[in-house]
Design a binder for these strands. Sequence first.
DNA 1: CCGCTATATTGACGTTGTCAATATTGAATG
DNA 2: CATTCAATATTGACAACGTCAATATAGCGG
Lengths: 211, 211
Amino acid sequence: MTRHKLARKTAYHHGDLKKALLDETVRILREEGESSLSLRRLGSNLGVSRTAPYNHFDSKDSLLSSVAEEGFFRFQHTMDVVRKKHRGQSGDKVTRVLVKAYVQFAKNNEVYYNLMYGSKSWHSTRPSDSLKTTARSILRTEIERLKRGQSRGQIAADVDVVRYAHMYWGTLHGISRLLLDGVYTGSESITKLCDSTADMLWGQLDPDPAT
Amino acid sequence: MTRHKLARKTAYHHGDLKKALLDETVRILREEGESSLSLRRLGSNLGVSRTAPYNHFDSKDSLLSSVAEEGFFRFQHTMDVVRKKHRGQSGDKVTRVLVKAYVQFAKNNEVYYNLMYGSKSWHSTRPSDSLKTTARSILRTEIERLKRGQSRGQIAADVDVVRYAHMYWGTLHGISRLLLDGVYTGSESITKLCDSTADMLWGQLDPDPAT
DNA sequence: CCGCTATATTGACGTTGTCAATATTGAATG
DNA sequence: CATTCAATATTGACAACGTCAATATAGCGG
């Protein structure tokens, strides 16, 4: 049980091939594109044979799912850092920061983001799919946070936080996807788009809508 | 020039193979999934050889792009019908109808919707990519409609309609994607989610925010 | 030192996308 | 109606792919 976690220099044959596979996968996807990714090239690039990856992943899809899961962990960490940094600030400000952080993450981690919501990963219907579990736990965390804010009076009491969370997630996901897919022309400022979106979303929560 | 447009019964060899390829592609994707789609199976199912499709499409990706484009046309038609049906009604009501119609289209035309925004279709960087042109024309139409509403006073004058259109598109796309990907658990009512979303979006346009 | 298990390799099979060369056919032209 | 030509379809071929089975190797616990 205390084997390959700290295996740095000398592991079984290769030296933590599993991590090397995950990293090289991301590198190839980023630098050469989806069509250039094959298990054979992967093995070749890492100096192992074509079927070596099968000792660590059941299939190509399984490998990609693992990358996706790593993406969710990175996402969670990134957002946690941002939230910690802006704790205690007003709701509208924080919302603006979070929206921009979300879209930034998608843009800075395009490979991960594509896989995180790739249809292949989600339609697999495998039992105990850890991807879904991970993703849903992130949503659950978000909902818990909203409920706490509500009980503190920072969020309007009559808001259905579950529904809001779904709206929030969908909105940010959609903007990120259109941005990544190149649907937005780029002539518009993404920063302004994010701020407008954040204001709209916060408008649903604001316990004291002054104006 | 006046050849295969009305080719119904007797065309060159097969009888409008192009349309048959597009239809069978959609059928396979819907009934058997993405991994079951190959040009060879496609030809076989239609009684032609494996390379016959190459007389109508440059490549497999090109075929899928054509399906995607057909999806955009279907989308535009569907939404036009809905809009026509509810012309003259109040902005909040129409927005609710349109939001539900959008998500419904995505759900009822999953194969088309997946391809319409598939990364392969958009990252191709082919010159004169008609997909991007089609999609952007839909957005432009939407923006024109908003501007007309603004000049009629049905929409608040201080709204940046371009930015709003991007927000609107992103929000609906995101909700549709999460729904199609099975990210939403299904325990929540999609109808209510759509209505809440519509209210939020209309809140950005309402020239007379009462309440 | 020995054996066991984790890891890696080689060989093989069927499938795929796509190209080149070739054949066939429908329609326009005379 | 016969000829010609471009549009359409076919066969053969090739490299690359995912994956399985059988086999080899190497490091660790006993």
